[in-house]
């Protein structure tokens, strides 16, 4: 079989599988008719949209299947950190005491999706807001800045997230 054709079929099936998981989560039943309908429609939609969801180059193939169990743990840690961040934020709102700076740093993550998740996590956690993400270069607005040194700031802001995400998306 042709390599391109095989990769195309794999892409369609993978898109359909993701759509199917979404369908089951939203309908909440395992009735035969519901699953039958879900399979038909997810394959129709996957056939039309696989090119948008999964890009043609096989280079980022590893990014398509993250480690789900680590991702769930990451989500729990993230929710906890969001609460911590909000308590700090409410303190800043009440006292109006802050020292905002812009810092630049780079990330070592390879996959696009992992970079997007990193940027979102930075936005959601203590006093930092991602302004720009260009390839591997991040511009971050930092409330209560401790330093403007690029490497040190990067280590303070993204350290734990980057380590986790490298384990999830390899």
């Amino acid at each position: 079989m042709d390599v391109f054709l095989r990769w195309k079929i794999i892409r369609i099936i993978l898109t359909a599988a993701y759509l199917m998981v979404g369908w089951i989560l939203f309908t909440g039943t395992l009735a035969l008719f519901s699953i039958f309908l879900g399979v038909i429609f997810s394959f129709c939609i996957a056939f039309l949209t696989y090119n948008i969801f999964i890009e043609e180059s096989e280079a980022a193939r590893r990014a398509l299947l993250p480690r789900i169990y680590l991702l769930l743990v990451y989500l729990g840690v993230l929710v906890f950190k969001i609460y911590l961040a909000s308590f700090k934020m409410s303190l800043a709102v009440i006292t109006a005491n802050m020292n905002p700076r812009i810092v630049h740093f780079r990330t070592r993550l390879k996959s696009e999706l992992a970079r997007v998740v990193l940027a979102n996590s930075i936005t959601l956690t203590p006093g930092t807001l991602t302004l720009n993400l260009d390839e591997d270069h991040l511009i971050v607005h930092w409330l209560n800045a401790k330093t403007t040194h690029s490497h040190y700031a990067g280590r303070l802001i993204k350290s734990h997230f980057e380590a986790w995400l490298r384990r999830i998306w390899i």
Binding site: S86, S90, V93, P100, T123, L124
Partner: peptide
Amino acid sequence: RFPDVYTRLQASSKCGVT
């Protein structure tokens, strides 16, 4: 209460999400 765009975004994004 905050002075400029970025700090206001900080307040709205974090507290709104939480």
